[in-house]
Design a protein around this nucleic acid. Structure first.
Lengths: 343, 343
DNA sequence: ACCCTATCTGCACACGTGTTCATAGTCACC
DNA sequence: GGTGACTATGAACACGTGTGCAGATAGGGT
């Protein structure tokens, strides 16, 4: 009865209107608040007529149980943080998109964070104020501050693209070295001998593994790289560095650390330098983004399968949530060769 | 004192460990829970020594105030839903990325939802269980169910790409017709007379406005379109339909509704059909995605500026949150011409 | 010495929900 | 009709936090 006084004050419709609560519905339906709560729970007893009545009134008022309030006495919030990679990068954009779909299908809500700001700033910022069920990090290198923070808050971490050795931290990586070895073998069998590598930023673990895989395969054939240069994984960066590489060295194989740079290199080689790809020069990428299959590029590359990766992330996530103290796991994904027209 | 009994039961360290709470910190620091709460509030009184002491212990224990619990008695959750567009589409991917950055900078946390599932399913699903501060929808057409649901829950809506006439629903759109008219004028001045339009799905408002802008500009010159076909805004779809258009008609200008399709058309025209662009045929896009400026495409297009659009969304959002009952607003963004090498 | 004020702190309530517990009601069966 | 079993429901508590209110402490002024 004292509640009535509170709800009668001035009918504040012009101020910010508030979301209907279970109490509001209970008053409108002439039942207790508990009954409203039970009307939205499958397990609780409630008379069918009463349940229908409550649900109809709730629908009219636009009531839905507030997940944040309910989450207080539940152990899961169903919120999962994603630190996105470089979304200007086509592969990362594709990955993010599929990851969002996969998490939604798994009943989790992805809160996406800008990965381009420093990870330390991300920690300083208040995303960890939210009780995330887990954190998925896409990136080339690992930030120890984030690992520590998540450990203290008991937030499971899944790393996507690099391996982290810490308790309750899982990771999923592509078999970069093996994939690159397949590319190297393909080019060696075709008779290529004068190789250069167009790599990405050195702090990316995948970049180093791809370089290593290439070097090892060449060493087995008694060869070594003529030149190695780094760009920023972007199309423009790849084009710029590829021009320098192709002008300074006499190459017959330019192996790139990802598709975007390979496509940039392809443009420079064909249009600016007038080289004949693949007759005089092989150019290869890595990842197999959508664009690699476009007829104007038709890029030979190694497929870093997005769907399989996302499925692996979801699997790691669910296993970790089911058994928080389980030992860390690492999933490795095979990168298979995609033979097209640039080798 | 009764609390002690509760906390002493078995020290359940092997089960799912729980996040430290203000009560835990209070016990460890020998102060009241209120003091801990105040230690993290700028406005509250607290002795400096005591505040430092509490914050140090909190840092050791990895304590942070739980935003969900705090959000219960606050009017904002700082969570904002984003219904993403088609992230396979390059423009939408770019837009999503910048939107995430912009929202983060504005102190909001974006919860990203898969826009490819039907909007009705999105409503049926339980994202609205969370008290979102607002919902940002990127898409070509408007789903009335979502508008109704958000209205009932008092969740402000911002539409990105189409205009919706409903209370407290804001929108931001590109001046599509004017942008397309600029392209048409450019092509007319260059002497083009035989135009075709390669459009997107009909339910997209922007698509219709772009078509309309083109038709009007042609009509002013006493011309009309020779042919109009639709694809799905994708590279592959654009390529396929462009081949048909170019084979069936004698054109000197192929105006595309977005860059992806224009680039697909460009590949078909040059490589498959051996046409000379721009000598014999003009091909134009719309949006000005990064790729349009790549030397291998060098696409003439109209710029649909991402930064400006995101800034507009943030502005609409903040204004709406400040004044929930304000009349609906519509921001229009100019699409300026980008002259490159395909006209 | 006393009082008033300014500063600090703890208690208690509110936020909105799920769930346990006890109780009222119903029905069947002896 | 009485008793037991069972169902349906409301009151109460818990989740973790911010904050109003009152009380306590200290310090200074008369």
């Amino acid at each position: 009865m004292t509640e009535d006084d509170g709800s009668m004050k001035f009918a504040p419709a012009d101020a910010a209107p508030r979301r209907a609560t279970a109490m509001d519905v209970a008053r409108a339906a002439g039942v207790s608040r508990s009954a409203v709560s039970r009307a939205f729970s499958q397990t609780a007893y409630l008379d069918t007529d009463k349940r229908d009545h409550i649900r109809r009134i709730a629908a009219e008022m636009g009531y839905r149980p507030n997940a944040l309030a309910a989450g207080l006495n539940r152990t899961r919030s169903n919120l999962v943080g994603i630190v996105a990679g470089d979304v200007g990068n086509l592969y990362d954009a594709q990955l993010l998109s599929r990851l969002v779909s996969g998490l939604t299908a798994a009943g989790k809500w992805p809160v996406v964070l800008d990965g381009s700001v420093g990870a330390d700033r991300l920690v300083a910022t208040d995303i960890f104020a939210y009780p995330l069920d887990a954190m998925i990090v896409r990136g080339g290198s690992v930030d120890p501050v984030m690992v520590d923070t998540c450990a203290k808050l008991h937030i499971p971490l899944v790393f996507l693209g690099c391996v982290v050795d810490a308790p309750a931290v899982d990771s999923i990586v592509c078999r970069n070295a093996e994939g690159m070895a397949r590319i190297a073998d393909l080019l060696l069998n075709r008779g290529r001998r004068r190789f250069a590598f167009l790599g990405g930023p050195a702090q990316w673990a995948s970049q180093q593994q791809r370089l290593q895989g290439l070097c090892d395969a060449l060493a087995q054939a008694g060869l070594q790289l003529i030149a190695t240069e780094s760009a920023d994984f972007s199309h423009q960066g790849g084009a710029k560095v590829a021009r320098r590489l192709l002008q300074d060295h006499d190459l017959d194989a330019l192996v790139c650390a990802n598709d975007a740079m390979a496509i940039g290199a392809l443009g420079v080689a064909r249009h600016d330098l007038g080289l004949n790809v693949p007759a005089d020069l092989s150019i290869t990428g890595f990842d197999d983004v959508d664009m690699a299959s476009w007829p104007c590029f038709d890029l030979t590359t190694a497929c870093n399968p997005v769907e399989e990766t996302v499925a692996g992330v979801i699997e790691l996530l669910e296993a970790r949530l089911a058994t928080p103290s389980a030992p860390s796991r690492r999933i490795q994904i095979d990168a298979h060769l995609v033979r097209r027209g640039t080798h």
